[in-house]
Lab assay of single mutants.
Amino acid sequence: MASQGTKRSYEQMETDGERQNATEIRASVGKMIGGIGRFYIQMCTELKLSDYEGRLIQNSLTIERMVLSAFDERRNKYLEEHPSAGKDPKKTGGPIYRRVNGKWMRELILYDKEEIRRIWRQANNGDDATAGLTHMMIWHSNLNDATYQRTRALVRTGMDPRMCSLMQGSTLPRRSGAAGAAVKGVGTMVMELVRMIKRGINDRNFWRGENGRKTRIAYERMCNILKGKFQTAAQKAMMDQVRESRNPGNAEFEDLTFLARSALILRGSVAHKSCLPACVYGPAVASGYDFEREGYSLVGIDPFRLLQNSQVYSLIRPNENPAHKSQLVWMACHSAAFEDLRVLSFIKGTKVLPRGKLSTRGVQIASNENMETMESSTLELRSRYWAIRTRSGGNTNQQRASAGQISIQPTFSVQRNLPFDRTTIMAAFNGNTEGRTSDMRTEIIRMMESARPEDVSFQGRGVFELSDEKAASPIVPSFDMSNEGSYFFGDNAEEYDN
Rank of each mutant, 00 (worst) to 15 (best):
M1H: 13
A2Q: 00
Q4S: 15
Q4C: 00
T6G: 00
T6M: 08
K7S: 00
K7L: 00
S9T: 06
Q12D: 14
M13I: 09
E14L: 03
R19H: 15
N21P: 01
R26M: 12
V29S: 02
M32G: 04
I33S: 08
F39Y: 11
F39D: 06
E46N: 02
K48R: 13
S60R: 11
E64M: 09
M66W: 04
M66S: 09
M66C: 14
V67K: 07
D72N: 12
R75V: 04
R75A: 04
K77L: 11
L79K: 10
E80Q: 06
H82K: 02
S84G: 14
A85R: 15
K90A: 02
G93M: 07
G94F: 05
P95D: 09
Y97P: 00
R98M: 11
R99Y: 09
V100W: 07
V100K: 13
M105T: 09
I109C: 13
Y111G: 03
R118G: 12
I119R: 08
N124D: 11
D127P: 07
G132M: 04
T134I: 10
T134D: 00
M136E: 05
W139K: 07
L143P: 02
D145C: 11
A153T: 14
R156C: 11
M159R: 03
S165I: 01
Q168R: 06
G169D: 09
R174M: 11
R175E: 02
A181G: 10
G187I: 01
T188G: 10
R195N: 05
M196Q: 09
R199N: 12
G200M: 12
I201A: 03
R204I: 02
R208N: 04
G209C: 13
N211I: 11
Y219I: 07
L226Q: 10
L226T: 14
G228N: 03
K229R: 09
F230P: 02
A237W: 03
M238F: 09
M238G: 05
M239F: 01
D240W: 03
D240S: 07
E244N: 06
S245T: 15
P248C: 06
P248M: 04
D255Q: 06
D255E: 13
S262W: 06
K273P: 06
S274F: 07
L276G: 09
A284P: 07
I301R: 08
I301Q: 10
L307I: 08
Q308H: 14
N309S: 13
N309H: 09
N319T: 06
P322N: 01
P322S: 15
A323P: 09
H324K: 01
S326Q: 04
W330T: 00
A336Y: 01
F338W: 07
D340P: 00
L341W: 04
R342H: 14
L344T: 14
K351Q: 03
K357W: 07
S359G: 13
T360C: 12
I365T: 13
S367G: 13
E369M: 11
N370H: 10
N370V: 01
M371V: 12
T373K: 05
E375S: 11
E375F: 02
S377E: 02
T378M: 02
S383C: 12
Y385F: 14
G393T: 04
G394W: 06
G394Y: 04
N395Q: 14
N397L: 13
Q398R: 14
Q398A: 15
R400T: 14
S402H: 14
Q405H: 08
N417P: 11
T423W: 04
M426T: 12
A427Q: 07
F429H: 07
D439Y: 10
T442A: 06
I444P: 13
I445M: 10
R446K: 13
E449S: 11
A451L: 05
P453N: 08
E454K: 11
D455F: 05
E465H: 03
E465C: 03
L466G: 00
L466F: 15
A472W: 07
S473M: 05
E484L: 09
F489D: 05
G490E: 12
D491C: 10
A493K: 05
E494N: 13
E495F: 05
Y496R: 02
N498E: 09
